[in-house]
Design a protein around this nucleic acid. Structure first.
Lengths: 184, 184, 184, 184
DNA sequence: TATGAATGAGCCTTCATTCAT
DNA sequence: AATGAATGAAGGCTCATTCAT
């Protein structure tokens, strides 16, 4: 009779606890020792659940990608008209700005890592692609090009706020987005 | 008989040669040894011109920030009307997309590093701030908020292209930008 | 309902299954995890039957030493004249060359480990001694010195074949041994 | 102007100092840290001269193989008749018994390591082969098969003495060897 | 000025072993 | 009896940095 622990469930919990760490430190700067300390487990335990640092990171990217897609769907479920969708999306973004930023950092690390590798994991490239297009579909403005562009803008905005220490307020984004969609 | 008479000039040349390396590998993943090898100097030489890895990186950020500001000014010098400025800016961005991307990565690394540190270098925060507002001034559309937002959009667009393996073509950006400025 | 009723019997079976592993990988390179995996048990089970890696290995050495002595006796039982004994021994060696080689490796590991240790297990030193002299007695040529030397030669020959990728054929050994015993 | 140190010369010196360590502990049991401590250098220095543990070990094998071949040639140079050669070889072996034993252990480790590897270094396999045949040539008895067999016997004898705590005296080996060569 | 030898802390990972179940 | 989750020391190796030359 083994210890009563749901291996997969615990693995996911560990992943969740890693998110902020990876976002703040970056893949390369974050050591397994540091992770272990922060999660209050031993390094051995980490290697019991993941085959290595890279695997841990890849699984983290996969996990958050799936979860976010789900969350975004939830948030936009009630919104019917394109306008309502934009509003809902804006609120969604605003509420989780920090999270989004962290997510961006993680993705950036992930991509850079993939590009540097000679043999990038193809599965996760797809996951990301799917996420992007998924959000665009959820948004569902008439013009698909426009939909995707809105994402671009949001992405840029989040980053801008990071570099600029939070200065362009949400209202700017809101106003600009409406201007984009309705032309004035 | 030294390679180059002027100390500072040589130092800048070394910095320029580091740019791609830092952009591609990231601060944490790039070792002094690797830099030295790539620049065909010894690690000792590196430490002769810079007090350490961090100093080298900081100087690099400072250098590219200054240079870019200057380059952008040059590129937009001839353009008089806002429309011409937009066109010039677009061409400017298009020509140096890869460079911009690399620059973004370097800044990201820099910022993250600063944020993680307890004692961030204030001088460079200003430099960056100055860069951002500088570009906005150069662009000189009537609405300063709009000007700044255009930067945001460009930033987001460059990143989007990176994640999306170059898929949204420049025309999209061009079209959207005009839509933003002229409303339709 | 346990797999095998008898504790000791199962312990011996585990030991037998370890033999090739230890021979091929060497004591230091072989991990308990690896052993457990190969024997299709958990590491916990291993520690249930043996007090540790060293104990497991010691018991293995003891086991094969005893078994070989017995096997050699069996093989030489029918042979009456010295000549017949030599023949039988040669056949015995030839049949189990690989096994002998592996055995040599295990002993070597064992000895080295003992020598390196400050407190070598005296029991097993004796076992080995007994094995050597046992074989000599079984062989029973008139000259005991010669008998022991034959063992030496066989030992060297097996190793030679290993280093030399099987090149000196058995005939050489046979011819040389006869030459030793009969003088020409 | 770099430090005045002959890189290759120092590398060889480090190798020589490793010999006993590898012989006594075995490849797998000997850690780089231990080596560094014993040689009174830092691990970093070790990695400055060798690309890794395996490289260090391979170079060690190569070095001792070459050196021994040379030493054996020197020792047998004066001996003209086969008998004199045998005598010289025996003296040679006797003088350096411990060294030979250690050498055997190192070779064993080396071979095992090679066999376990999927891609063994072919260069060193040759070196060993060359050593074996080299010694046989130096010995130069009429019968090449016999010459090689003498080596086998010596090898076995050295090992036997190890297992048997020095018991078969050199005279036995001497007597048996003459018996082999002259028939009685 | 320029070199590269030297260092030792720290990184990722593996290991023998323990123990709750 | 049997499992496998958990541990932390130790292993191979890399790194920023120093310093004699």
């Amino acid at each position: 009779m083994p210890k009563i622990i749901d291996h997969d469930e615990y693995r996911e919990e560990l992943l969740h606890q890693c998110f902020d760490l990876f976002a703040e430190e970056g893949y390369a700067s974050l050591s397994m020792r540091r992770i272990a300390d922060e999660l209050d487990v031993s390094t051995g335990t980490l290697y019991h659940y993941f085959s290595g640092k890279e695997d841990l990171f890849n699984q983290l990217v996969e996990l958050i990608t799936c979860r976010d897609l789900f969350d975004a769907k939830e948030a936009l479920k009630g919104a019917k008209t394109p306008d309502e969708r934009i509003d809902a999306l804006l609120r969604f973004v605003e509420e989780r700005e920090t999270y989004f930023l962290n997510q961006s950092f993680i993705w950036m690390d992930y991509y850079r890592h993939q590009v540097a590798d000679r043999d990038p994991d193809p599965r996760l490239g797809e996951t990301l692609e799917q996420y992007r297009s998924g959000i665009a579909r959820i948004l569902d403005v008439r013009d698909p090009e426009l939909a995707e562009f809105i994402l671009t803008v949001i992405n840029g905005w989040v980053l801008q706020r990071y570099f600029n220490r939070g200065k362009p307020p949400v209202e700017t984004l809101s106003r600009m987005l409406r201007r984009l969609i309705h032309g004035r």
